[in-house]
Structures are given as structure tokens and as C-alpha cells.
């Protein structure tokens, strides 16, 4: 459905620059700690079109989360530059929505008070906040739990509340760091379906980090495979499965198997040590 576009290296071309929603140009990141230096990223180029859904898979510690933190402006690159919608990211980037794997709901606020936080920060009137919160609670299927505290919710419901809190201020770019990681398989499928539905409606640019190849193929327009650090892009795989997709059906699509094999091979280099 969506046109397959050129490889990440073409990010340097003028056209890609003009159209990119998010771009990393020659980004390197080295963390310095007491025990020494760790080079996580080196010369990374990456660009996303507006409305593109990109998934990143890779081994643990390969710098996937670092890329998201750089895009969010929570971290600064050691070298190179990060752009979001054409603007260099210098400070915390409030034009993005960042859904971390970490549970960051405020435990002393109810579900509706939590979802209202970004709007309160933007000094939006009470009646408008109430209306938008009600609307999003319906969209993520949390009706009846408005007055519950996070400690009274299941893991899946907390994820839904976090998703609602991220979507309510309508950021054009969404960063998602293994958002469904610790959930059971069935719940994961339900939330993936929910996410695809919301994404089709809002068409946001998404960078989605995951461990799960199937999840990456199910959701994304394009899947990047990161190598272990310092991170290089080992494979840039456009997904040829048409949208709208049915999360239960994707794995039976004829193209699925080929995608899965190629991603798996890229993820596990043949010369790997016996485990």
C-alpha cells in the first residue's frame, strides 16, 4: 500500500531531507562511566518519512533505546546531529510522544488525572481537558476505570493509560520502547490491534523498538535490524504486507515467512558464538 522507499543511506539526499519527519545524521554516542567508555552508536544515519511506521529490532544493549532518547532530546549525541521535522533537537523534544517500557504513570493520580497531565502542562481549560480525556479513554478502551489509581490496574490497562496520555496532546511523532514487552501473548495482540487502529486514524510517524520480530513485521512499514554495539544497521527491510492489517492474520501472509527469515538471519550472524 505504502510505497517502498530507498535505503537509509539516501538520507543524505536533498529530497529525503526535505521530507523526513525524523532524521539522524552521522550520529555517534559514547557513554562515559567510572569503568570506562562505551561506544553505543557510530556514524548512524537514519531517516523517516512523515507518517511512516518504523520498527527497530536488535540485540540487548545495541543502542535501540539510545536512539529513542536522542530523538526525545533526553540525551545529546557525541557526534552528528538529530533532526525532528527539520529542526535540530537541542533540548528536550516536546513535539514527540515517548512511550517507555518503564511504567511512568503517576501513582498518586487517577487514570483520568494521569491522562490529563500533558494538557494541564499546556494550560488548557478544564472543560476541554475533561472532554478530550473522555474521548481518549473511550479510544483506548478504559471506560469505567477513570477514577482508578494505577496500582488498581492490570499491566495491560496501565499500558493503555500511558498510550492515552501520549496521544492526548497529539504529538506528530511517537517513540515507543518495547511498550508491550512484559505482557502476555494474547494481551499483546489485542494492544497491537489497538495501536494499528489508532495509527491508521491519526497517521503519526512512529519509531517502535521491540525484541519481537513478529511484532515488528505485524506493525511496521519498515524494519531495521541493529547490530550489537557500536551499532550499525545490518538490514533495512521494507515490509510488503498490505494495510489494513489484521494482527492475527499477518503471520499467514505469503510474504511473512520471507521477511521473518531475512530478519532472523540478520539478527543472528552466522559466525555467532555457540550459546
Amino acid at each position: 500500500m505504502r510505497s517502498v522507499h530507498l535505503s537509509v543511506v539516501s538520507a543524505q539526499s536533498c529530497e529525503a531531507q526535505r521530507r523526513s519527519a525524523v532524521e539522524l545524521r552521522g550520529v555517534g554516542k559514547t557513554f562515559t562511566s567510572r569503568t570506562g567508555q562505551v561506544e553505543v552508536l557510530r556514524g548512524l544515519n537514519l531517516s523517516l518519512q512523515d507518517g511512516e511506521f518504523l520498527a527497530i529490532v536488535g540485540p540487548s544493549g545495541s543502542g535501540k533505546s539510545t536512539v529513542l532518547n536522542l530523538l526525545a532530546g533526553l540525551d545529546q549525541p557525541t557526534s552528528g546531529a538529530v533532526f525532528c521535522r527539520g529542526e535540530p533537537v537541542a533540548a528536550v523534544n516536546t513535539g514527540i510522544g515517548y512511550l517507555t517500557q518503564h511504567d511512568s504513570l503517576l501513582p498518586w493520580r487517577t487514570v483520568e488525572q494521569n491522562i490529563a497531565v500533558p494538557l494541564e502542562l499546556r494550560n488548557i481549560g478544564r472543560t476541554e481537558i475533561a472532554a478530550r480525556v473522555r474521548d481518549l479513554i473511550a479510544q483506548v478502551g478504559l471506560e469505567g476505570f477513570e477514577r482508578h489509581y494505577p496500582s488498581q490496574l492490570s499491566g495491560g490497562m496501565r499500558k493503555r493509560a500511558m498510550l492515552a496520555r501520549t496521544l492526548i496532546y497529539d504529538p506528530p511523532v511517537l517513540l515507543m520502547d518495547e511498550p508491550f514487552g512484559p505482557l502476555d501473548a494474547q494481551l499483546k495482540l489485542a494492544l497491537q490491534a489497538e495501536l494499528l487502529k489508532l495509527w491508521s486514524a491519526h497517521r503519526k510517524t512512529v519509531v517502535f523498538v521491540t525484541h519481537d520480530i513478529v511484532e515488528a513485521i505485524t506493525l511496521a512499514d519498515r524494519v531495521l535490524v541493529f547490530s550489537s554495539r557500536p551499532c550499525q544497521i545490518r538490514l533495512d527491510e521494507p515490509i510488503a504486507i498490505p494495510r489494513p492489517r489484521e494482527v492475527h492474520e499477518v503471520r499467514f501472509h505469503p510474504a511473512f515467512e520471507e521477511h521473518y527469515r531475512r530478519l532472523w538471519t540478520a539478527l543472528e550472524p552466522p559466525a555467532r558464538r555457540p550459546s
Binding site: 526525545a72 532530546g73 533526553l74 528536550v92 523534544n93 516536546t94 514527540i96 510522544g97 515517548y98 517507555t100 518503564h102 511512568s104 503517576l106 497531565v117 500533558p118 502542562l121 499546556r122 496520555r165 496532546y169
Partner: peptide, 17 residues
């Protein structure tokens, strides 16, 4: 929890908020 602070910052919270 610094992750909670980071989450609020990306939503647009300043120091005082």
C-alpha cells in the same frame, strides 16, 4: 524516579511543573 521525571519533561513540563 528519574524515568518519571523524563516522561513529564517530554510531555512539556518545565522545572517548576
Amino acid at each position: 524516579d528519574l524515568k518519571m521525571v523524563d516522561a513529564l519533561r517530554t510531555m512539556g513540563a518545565g522545572k517548576f511543573a
